[in-house]
Amino acid sequence: MLNGHMIDPRLRTLRVLQQEGTVTAAADVLHLTPSTVSQQLRGLAKDLGVQLLEAQGRRVRLTPAAYTVLDHADALCSQWERAQADLAEHRRGGFGQVRFAAVSSALAALVTPAAARLREEHPRLTVRMAEEESEKVFSLLLARRTDIAVVIPTADGPPPDDPRFDQRPLLDEPQDLLVAPDHPLAGGGAVRLADAAREPWIGSPGRPDQHQVMITACAAAGFTPRIAHHANDWFAVSAMVAEGFGIAIVPRLAPLPPGDQVVRVPLRGEPVPSRRIITCVRWGSDRQPPIAHGLEALRRAAAERRARGRPR
């Protein structure tokens, strides 16, 4: 596949710079040096005859001309994705590659089963998987370093109508309260989040999407959680909870240690805390057979998770 090489690669560099905000960050995503990124953008500006960047202290700012170029670049890239999909219809044999990037819980519970299904049903299709936080995957899509992102929408992410991306709901995932086995809330069935208002909490600031779910859910229940400890790994969170250092909100898909070290307690009330998991691809790329197969496998994996209901 040509993978976008028919379009000036410097336009991709400009798109990633817009998403990342700094030359250094864009260079990191593109696996280039900052000087190479700057050189590409200077060359593009010279060829177009317009100024694309303005110095702003030690940073750079996109000019109005740059935003005009980006509007056209978005349209060109979306049209090229559709062109590749149309051309793929003329090829036979089921060859190709699809790359997934996902937050850890979705990688374990949705992407891996989907990849296993693809391996069985499309053995000539190469599948790649990577764990990534939600805020990074959009730049990876633009840089063509991944094809399908499975993420949690955040306030800093692109809006649903962003012309660069096709974002679709995959699964609404309830949140559970995680407590120690001897905790008063452990044995009485579903509880209201407000019942835990006076408890110490385990926060996960290194997982901005999940941390924001906790803060928002507690606020909706009428309180601000007293965060006593921080941990990002679910096994670390579970260890703290098991020893009575606090409680936590965990997504239904989060992998926890086996055995009875901790107890998931379902939450009730209106609304029940949940987080939405979405798929995101480059606009127009969903018709390309490898990506279409990947999205279909994800939808089937999500349907199976819904059918299983609540874990222990």
Rank of each mutant, 00 (worst) to 15 (best):
D166H: 08
F235K: 10
D166C: 07
C77M: 02
R198M: 04
W80T: 03
D195F: 07
L193P: 01
W283S: 00
V127F: 04
S104G: 14
A190R: 11
E173G: 09
E121R: 15
A228L: 13
V241K: 11
I152D: 05
R276N: 01
T154G: 12
A66L: 03
M214N: 12
A231C: 05
Q212E: 14
R10C: 00
P9Y: 11
A106D: 10
L44T: 07
I291G: 14
A292E: 01
V179W: 00
R128L: 03
A248Q: 09
S134M: 04
L30P: 04
V213W: 10
G157F: 03
R58T: 08
C218S: 01
Q39D: 02
L193R: 13
A248W: 07
V98A: 03
E89L: 10
G187M: 00
F165T: 09
R128C: 04
V16E: 02
G93R: 02
R15E: 15
L125W: 11
T112Y: 03
P158Y: 10
L177D: 05
R252K: 06
P158K: 07
D86N: 11
T216D: 15
I249E: 00
S78T: 01
C77S: 00
D162S: 13
W234S: 01
F100W: 03
L140G: 06
A242W: 06
D176L: 05
H72D: 14
Q210C: 09
E89G: 09
V23H: 07
Q175D: 13
